[in-house]
């Protein structure tokens, strides 16, 4: 194992924790939080790879900044949907969102 592998290992572990949360938790807000964990894991991998491998200069830093910005946008829209849905259904449990069921 080299210097980069340890950081990538951390990123993979965090990603899998987030993925498990997204799949398993019932509360939609917790699902959004676990999505953020997954995005953070990807960012760790990006920054670590940019640090230890020579590539386009600055690409790792700038793309992780782009990801952080997009994550902010995603959280805003996602939680707005959650709140709009809560107004109709009075619940944040994912399995009770069945308005689209035919």
């Amino acid at each position: 194992m080299n210097a980069l592998s340890w950081w990538l290992l951390l990123a993979v572990m965090l990603f899998c924790i987030g993925a498990f949360g997204v799949l398993a938790r019932r509360n939609v807000i917790v699902v959004v939080m676990c999505l953020e964990l997954m995005l953070n894991a990807v960012n760790i991998a990006l920054v670590a790879t940019a640090q230890f491998r020579v590539g386009a200069p600055g690409a790792g830093t700038l793309f992780s900044l782009f990801i952080i910005t997009l994550a902010a946008a995603e959280v805003t829209v996602g939680l707005a949907i959650v709140i709009a849905n809560y107004r109709n259904k009075r619940t944040v449990q994912a399995d009770q969102y069945d308005q689209l069921k035919g």
Binding site: M1, S5, G55
Partner: peptide
């Protein structure tokens, strides 16, 4: 993890100079 621990995939190159 097994892929990373085996260390066959990634090789650390020269230290990238951080901009």
């Amino acid at each position: 993890s097994v892929v990373l621990v085996s260390g066959q995939v990634l090789h650390v190159g020269d230290k990238a100079l951080t901009p």
